[in-house]
């Protein structure tokens, strides 16, 4: 009797396991299908468009596998491409410099205000990204108080500007993506056991050594996540360059946008988009590999 019972038991168990094997796929299916149709297929379309050439009439293109579209795109927009990465890099570095002490203060020095301060870090998100950028444009602009004060104090002459400069674009990028940097930094700093820092102090490390040898290494996952979350959108952004820059500060996003929506040069825009995406992916991979973070999501 007992062997028979044991057998049915085993069979039942197997059946349950099999059913369970399918469950994750059922759960994943709707989201995966959505991402395939509206993310992967478009990217495929983008790839295929990137080698097309102009057909008859504006906006009609035929597939000719013209790979020199890429060379053309690069040679015509090299400056903007490099500028995008330069600005994104600068904005990421500035955001890191500004965010780290901020996240550190919230994680370790805020006491019972911690949750409130955390909400305040996210809060700027609740006010439209464009409104804030426009606000900066006006604060720093020709009619704003800042420039008037600087001119009044003769720090700035009438020819000096704050807006329509590379400085303004980088500052705008830094500002806009700052919470993306601060939040992951906070999350990884918060997880650090404060006793580890005390132990380091106990073992004859001064505050700076403790910070360098204990705090920073332990917060690396946050640094990696934060820099990625800042760099990626910054490199593809064109709003800041549009609102805070001048024709000399155009980024690759501005070029792609114009080629798509104004010039209707789909292959050129597609080629540039791919170049941007692939470059970012390569940079991200290299960076993640160096930083040694395994799980990306």
């Amino acid at each position: 009797m007992s062997t028979a019972l044991l057998h049915t038991g085993t069979h039942e168990k197997k059946a349950v396991l099999k059913k369970k094997k399918l469950i994750p796929y059922w759960l994943l299916a709707p989201g995966i299908i959505w991402l395939i149709i509206f993310f992967l297929v478009p990217i495929y379309q983008l790839i295929s468009t990137s080698t097309q050439t102009q057909g008859f009439g504006i906006g009609t293109y035929v597939q000719t596998y013209r790979f020199s579209n890429f060379a053309d795109a690069i040679s015509s927009s090299r400056a903007q491409l490099f500028r995008s990465f330069e600005y994104a890099f600068l904005a990421t570095v500035f955001a890191l410099i500004i965010s780290y002490p901020l996240a550190y203060a919230v994680a370790f020095k805020s006491g019972r205000w911690k949750n409130t301060l955390l909400v305040l870090i996210v809060a700027p998100f609740f006010c439209s990204f464009l409104l804030r950028t426009v606000a900066w444009e006006q604060i720093l602009g020709e009619q704003g108080l800042v420039i008037k004060t600087l001119r009044f104090l003769h720090i700035f002459s009438a020819q000096d500007h704050l807006t329509a400069t590379p400085f303004a674009v980088v500052a705008g990028l830094t500002y806009n993506f700052l919470p993306f940097m601060t939040l992951p930094l906070y999350a990884s700093l918060e997880r650090i056991d404060i006793r580890m820092m005390e132990a380091s102090g106990d073992l004859y490390a001064n505050a700076i050594t403790t910070f360098r040898r204990v705090t920073v290494p332990l917060s690396m996952p946050g640094v990696v996540a934060g820099t990625l979350l800042t760099f990626i959108p910054a490199a593809g952004d064109y709003i800041n360059a549009e609102l805070l820059g001048n024709p000399g500060t155009k980024m690759i996003g501005n070029v792609i946008e114009a080629r798509y929506l104004a010039i209707v040069d789909y292959p050129g825009a597609a080629a540039l988009s791919l170049i941007l995406m692939v470059t970012i992916l390569i940079l991200v991979m290299a960076y993640v590999k160096r930083a040694g973070t395994e799980e990306l999501v």
Partner: peptide, 22 residues
Amino acid sequence: NILIFLPMATPEIVMGASLLTM
């Protein structure tokens, strides 16, 4: 995992442009 990560690593302009293309 990669499929989930990719949209976050893709600049918005690339996603916007490619969707429009489609």
